[in-house]
Design a protein around this nucleic acid. Sequence first.
DNA 1: ACGCTATTCTTACATCATAAGAATCGTCAA
DNA 2: TTGACGATTCTTATGATGTAAGAATAGCGT
Lengths: 227, 227
Amino acid sequence: MTAKRGRGQRAGLTRQAILQAAVRLADQEGLAALSMRRIAAELGVEAMTLYHHVPNKNALLDGMVEQLLSETVPPLGVSSWQESLREYAHSFLAVLSAHPNLIPLAASRPAMTPQNLRTMETVLESLRSSGFELTQAYDVVRSLAAFVLGHVAAHLDPIPACPPDQPRGRSIDVDAYPLFFEALKKSDPISRFDFALEALLHGFDASRTASPSSGPQAAGEVGPDER
Amino acid sequence: MTAKRGRGQRAGLTRQAILQAAVRLADQEGLAALSMRRIAAELGVEAMTLYHHVPNKNALLDGMVEQLLSETVPPLGVSSWQESLREYAHSFLAVLSAHPNLIPLAASRPAMTPQNLRTMETVLESLRSSGFELTQAYDVVRSLAAFVLGHVAAHLDPIPACPPDQPRGRSIDVDAYPLFFEALKKSDPISRFDFALEALLHGFDASRTASPSSGPQAAGEVGPDER
DNA sequence: ACGCTATTCTTACATCATAAGAATCGTCAA
DNA sequence: TTGACGATTCTTATGATGTAAGAATAGCGT
């Protein structure tokens, strides 16, 4: 066991070590347990010690998101742009799924790590060389990232709703929404992710400018923004 | 101005009124300002008073999200499933964009309000009568909602990244990621949203199992569409 | 008129982020 | 070796937070 340390006895702290401990703690005990004191305790140190490596708690939370994103695996080799995007999306999904407690963090403080930028650059390159306009390619990647984020965020179990009171026994009137609750039972988030991912990829393919095909049918061209 | 109230003098508080005040406060001063004391002050009341209408702060936050979602407009009339989904997405987008400070809340505590369920039911109906399998239809709606959420969440300005220190003048090495930063300047979130929305719709269309070519089919015909 | 209950306020406490400063160690110049 | 300095750590203290416990009041139904 670590003997108690005195006043100036180094503990060998690092920003990295702190972030990792914080992530580990949040993984195990949830975001609510993430206090400076608790993190410090986890490292065998007093709370104020952390402030020598991190300016404040907000910065620490930001750092945790960076830490997370650095766990994504960069796209392996060159392949079709679809495959690149699939890799990108799945890598993102895997990381977030591995740290469900951190999803609210990732959703509320998007970060751009060098790691992430490098991956983006690769994917952009892949898209460009497949006939996408640069601006379009960018929109594609960003949209994909947004979709992954929204997807994982949407799976935090929805709160029961039904304002506060439940005069009737049922938590919510299931019979009033037959389609919804029927489908709810059969659907699962994982297959939904792949389903929507493929839909997105298909749609992206169709919106390539360089694509020779004229309007296939239905849903004409992009742009009928109305309200 | 309100004369000070005594001990049992009613203030006419309501769960609704509290939630609305909370939303207003968060809109104006940000989530960080959302303390029980501050909300109470906004209502001319002491903090503990709130606990008679709301069990605790978490429940209050949940309620705020419900409050938000209740602002979405239900889909007007019958039209193509694409138009239904567009309406759904844009209505969702509009609400979240109108309350940017609440986006992290909405992203971390998804809620199912009766309002929202009713809208979903309508959209599900529309999809089914257009040849979608129920399970697919459900995946479509959920995916769309997830996408909208992710989209708005991803536009909270990304944190600068670059761990802590900036030895070089630049906050991040722009030249190392030419494609990304080139595209960054030209792209804007709004057009990206519509772009990706159309892509999704297109992809959904392609993934319909039973694809009756087109034409004025079921769903209770498309009547005169003006109101 | 009188008590009952819902509503409100008061007080109190543990916990939080963090400011200010004191103690200690390692290191390097002399 | 010595001595000073800077980096790291701990101590103490402050104001804010969520909320438990209970006291006071007002208006209601009887």
